[in-house]
Design a protein around this nucleic acid. Structure first.
Lengths: 140, 140
DNA sequence: GTAGGTGCAAACAATTTGCACAGTA
DNA sequence: TACTGTGCAAATTGTTTGCACCTAC
């Protein structure tokens, strides 16, 4: 997501492209993994946008489906750019790194839910916890 | 989990079988779905065990693998008795009910993680969100 | 000029912790 | 008796909100 795309993305949703918003989107786009409000705030350095503003904007972005919220076991709410393919996450419980896992063949589960429980699946979350390559080679 | 089993379960882990602990375990065992600390506290009525005590004990139980923590999108930490089979949850976003979904054929995902990322999967969480049978028949 | 956006501080909610007292092995 | 467990209240942490000021259309 280049600055230009961020701008377009925002105006498409009637959100004014302020410096703070562009910064938040750029940071999320350049980060490989989902970020919490606190991490975004830190990552933007000097201080500008206020933490409360970061919270407000992340929520606005999520409402506009510009970003997607993800929740891991630590309970913190994180956000990632919503553009890409549907995917899941590999969370390393040693170093904390989060990688994307591309494929998702979840349909059999959704069908089981429908047939056995009459439950219409609208969305799902699937996250893996374990040890990433780096950490299994040189344990912390 | 009968009262007797709760007792045995606790003493097996060197945890004194107090009335409060037995109550918490019985409530979790009789509830079909995972409960938060606040829900356990409410469910035990009159007041006894203090909310802080409920938190402390749920954490102790989790450390002893007597209960398993589950985290849904609402961010609240819930706990369920750990005894049964590995399973996942169907969370109805209309009425809030949580059903268990028995089967879990997650191995292909774990293998993909290992082969493509060198990531050793230790555990995973998989939850579905949607509309349960009751709510799709008579919308709230 | 006006509606929308932001900073700051206070309000909230969920969870944790310190400490003195109570209960159990 | 010694140690574990509990109640109560205060401290933390994560997130939301009210309000006055600022800024992009």
């Amino acid at each position: 997501v280049t600055p230009f795309e961020s701008r377009a993305l925002l105006s498409r949703h009637r959100l004014r492209p302020t410096a703070g918003r562009l910064g938040i989107l750029d940071l999320l786009a350049s980060s490989g993994s989902p970020l919490s409000a606190a991490e975004v705030h830190e990552g933007l350095g000097d201080g500008r946008p206020d933490l409360a503003t970061v919270y407000r904007n992340l929520e606005r972005f999520a409402a506009a489906s510009i970003v997607r919220p993800v929740r891991f076991e630590d309970g913190a709410r994180r956000y990632e750019i919503a553009g890409g393919d549907h995917h899941h996450h590999l969370v390393c419980t040693t170093c904390g790194e989060i990688e994307d896992l591309a494929s998702c063949r979840i349909e059999p589960f959704a069908e089981a839910a429908l047939h056995r429980h009459g439950f219409q699946v609208a969305s799902h979350s699937l996250e893996f916890y374990g040890t990433c390559r780096k950490c299994s080679i040189s344990p912390h």
